[in-house]
Design a protein around this nucleic acid. Sequence first.
DNA 1: AATAGGCAAACGAACGTTCGTTTGCCTAAC
DNA 2: GTTAGGCAAACGAACGTTCGTTTGCCTATT
Lengths: 171, 171
Amino acid sequence: MVSIRKTHSDVVDAAGRLFAERGYHGTSMRALGKELGLLGSSLYSHVDSKQDLLVEVVEEGARLFETSAEDARTTQGTARDRLAALVTGHVTVVLDHVDVARTFLNEARMLDAEHRDRVLDARDHYERVFRSVLADGVRDGSFRSDIDPKTASIYILSVLNALERMTRPGH
Amino acid sequence: MVSIRKTHSDVVDAAGRLFAERGYHGTSMRALGKELGLLGSSLYSHVDSKQDLLVEVVEEGARLFETSAEDARTTQGTARDRLAALVTGHVTVVLDHVDVARTFLNEARMLDAEHRDRVLDARDHYERVFRSVLADGVRDGSFRSDIDPKTASIYILSVLNALERMTRPGH
DNA sequence: AATAGGCAAACGAACGTTCGTTTGCCTAAC
DNA sequence: GTTAGGCAAACGAACGTTCGTTTGCCTATT
């Protein structure tokens, strides 16, 4: 028999894939099971609920971006170096974990209020790292003095978040 | 009697609102009915199917952006003027029709292949207007000669599309 | 001016299907 | 030999949609 027992991690990965592709509400447990060669009901050996799956995927996304930002923030060198680390880190996370990133961006609003608020906090914290590195750069002369860190961080993150859209079929 | 008869347009408007907020698959016909003070079944006096509602909202979005781009493209003046018209036109559409714009951006992928392809074509055409105005501007000296119209159009549209994200509760 | 007919809008119940989830059994892996 | 993973069947709830009926307004006829 070639049947391979699936793990908790297999289920979460497949969930990220389908949530990214069809959305949380567009993904049924039966469809998720089929993606893994299982029945929908069999998933409940690995997971307590569908909502828990979304929580896990979104929190993995939060953790990935958080780690990337923390690494960049503590990078040695100028503020310009740290901004470069932030940007390449973000791109790396998105390209290496497309499905998680897409689910994190688009499906977090389907979470219950408590978890959704945690995601908003995480995003806020992430943006503040960009803003503070930009402010450092303006102060130490890395960047032009007429740059407003808040505006610039929004613009940069806008372009970075647009990366995700380009991973959809038919860019 | 305070009972107000609802129109086809009322239903489409409410659908845009709920699709933007909860997503297409996260919106039930009963919830949509309740939004209007009706039963779910009563909506079928105005509409043939839920899918048709999504088609209508998304196509309205496509039409709004298309019209805005066409107005900007035929604006008198320099390429810089036309780019300004494109940007302000886009912002106006998003701010005046938040729900339609959000549904157009996020829920179009829930359409059947045929309608989805039409949306992709419309987006492609919209981006080409930006690209061509930018190319004109590089040629006539409105913009720096080292600007790549394709890259610049992607960046500009990234920032413009990010507008929508900021209309979500908790920016 | 009164009234009857037609019609679109809305209701309330029910259709068949799918949803997320639970249960009990079987079997492959430890 | 124990146990965890998967199956098959079933649960109640919710889904999109259809049905037959009622409601209230508009209009044409009286």
